[in-house]
Simulated scan of single mutants.
Amino acid sequence: MAAGTAQADYPNRDVRVIVPAAAGGGTDAIVRKISNIAEESFPVSMYVENVAGGMTATGLLQLMDARPDGQTIAAITYDSIITIPWKEMLPGFSMDRMKMIARITKEADAITVADDAPYETLGDLIAAAKDDPGSIRVGIQNMGARTHLTLLQLQNQTGAEFKVISYDNSAATQKEALLNGEVDAVVTSLGDLAPLIESGQARGLVEFSDTQNKGFPNVPPVTETDTGLDLQMGSFITLVAPAQTPDDVIETLEDTYHEAYESEEFQQWLTDIGVTAAWLGSDEVTQWSRDTQQQLFDTMDNLVEKGVLEK
C-alpha cells in the first residue's frame, strides 16, 4: 500500500499502543484506561506495550520505524516534543516524522509544600525567596528537565532565587524529601503527590495552568493568583502514528479515542486521579504542538544565553 493511500479495511488486526515509559507510571495508567474503553467499540484489540528508555526516545524510535498503517501508534509526552529535539538526542528527528491523532490530557506542574509550611500562597513563597535569596529549598526532577525549567522560569519572571535540589526524575524521592524537611517545596504534578495532599500532610500552593483542576479544587491555577503570572508548564499525553499514515486511518483512531475520552467513566476517573482532561483533535493538536515547541525552545535558548540553563 502506498503511503497516504486510504485503507478501507482498517482495522484488520490488533493495534499496538506504545507507551515510551515504564509500566505503573501515570502515563501508562492513563493510556491503558482510555485504550481499554476505546477497545469496547473497536473491532479489534488495542494492546499497550511499555518501551522505556532514553527519556521516551526508545519508544519514539519504534513508532517512527513502524509501518504507517495504523497498526502501531504511540502515546508521547513532553520529552518527546520538547526535551529530545531541543537536546538533539535523536539526530534528524522532527515532528514531521509523526502524525498527531489527538491530545488526551494535560498535567500541569505545581508547587507543593508541607502542611505546616508558613507559606499560604504562591505570593508568600516568592516574597520569602526574595527576602532571603537561596534560603527556600525546592526539589525538582533532574537538572535541565521540565520541572527544572518551570522553576527557572518562575525565578526569571519574578526575581526570586531558590535553592534548587535535584531528585533524579523521581516523585517518590521528592515526597520523602518534603516529608522529612529536606526541602521546603517541590515542583511536580499534584497527581504525583495526591496521597500526601489527601492525607493532609502537604498542601498545593499553585498549579501552573490556566484551568482549575477539578481533582484539587483548593489549589488555584497560576492565572487566578495575585502574582500576575501566566506561567503555564507541565506534561501532556498525545497519541501519534507514524508519518504517512492515511488520513482516514487517523480519523478512525481519533473518533474512537474521542468517544472513549467523552465517556463518563474516563472523565470521572481523571478527576479522581487529579489529571485535567484536555482534548485536542488531530488538526488542533498538530498546531498546538508546533506552537508549544517553538515557544519553549525560545524560552530555553534565552535561558542558555543568560547562563541560567545549560544545553
Score class of each variant (00 low, 15 high):
residue 100 M to D: 09
residue 138 V to H: 00
residue 205 L to W: 04
residue 132 D to Q: 13
residue 113 V to W: 02
residue 148 H to D: 10
residue 127 A to V: 05
residue 182 E to L: 10
residue 135 S to C: 01
residue 176 E to P: 00
residue 144 G to R: 04
residue 99 K to F: 01
residue 121 T to S: 14
residue 220 P to F: 07
residue 91 P to Q: 13
residue 219 V to I: 08
residue 219 V to N: 01
residue 120 E to K: 11
residue 95 M to A: 10
residue 91 P to S: 11
residue 118 P to C: 10
residue 93 F to K: 08
residue 156 N to S: 15
residue 155 Q to S: 13
residue 164 V to P: 00
residue 207 E to T: 14
residue 141 Q to Y: 00
residue 149 L to E: 06
residue 164 V to Y: 00
residue 191 G to I: 02
residue 110 A to T: 07
residue 118 P to F: 15
residue 200 G to M: 14
residue 181 G to E: 09
residue 209 S to G: 01
residue 113 V to M: 04
residue 143 M to F: 15
residue 212 Q to I: 06
residue 166 S to N: 10
residue 151 L to A: 00
residue 154 L to M: 12
residue 187 V to K: 03
residue 186 V to G: 01
residue 143 M to W: 11
residue 206 V to Q: 12
residue 219 V to F: 04
residue 185 A to W: 08
residue 122 L to E: 09
residue 101 I to R: 03
residue 90 L to Y: 07
residue 152 L to W: 01
residue 90 L to F: 07
residue 122 L to D: 09
residue 176 E to F: 08
residue 127 A to C: 03
residue 153 Q to H: 07
residue 210 D to A: 13
residue 181 G to V: 11
residue 203 R to D: 00
residue 154 L to P: 08
residue 98 M to S: 05
residue 172 A to F: 05
residue 128 A to Q: 14
residue 126 I to G: 04
residue 177 A to G: 10
residue 202 A to N: 06
residue 171 A to M: 06
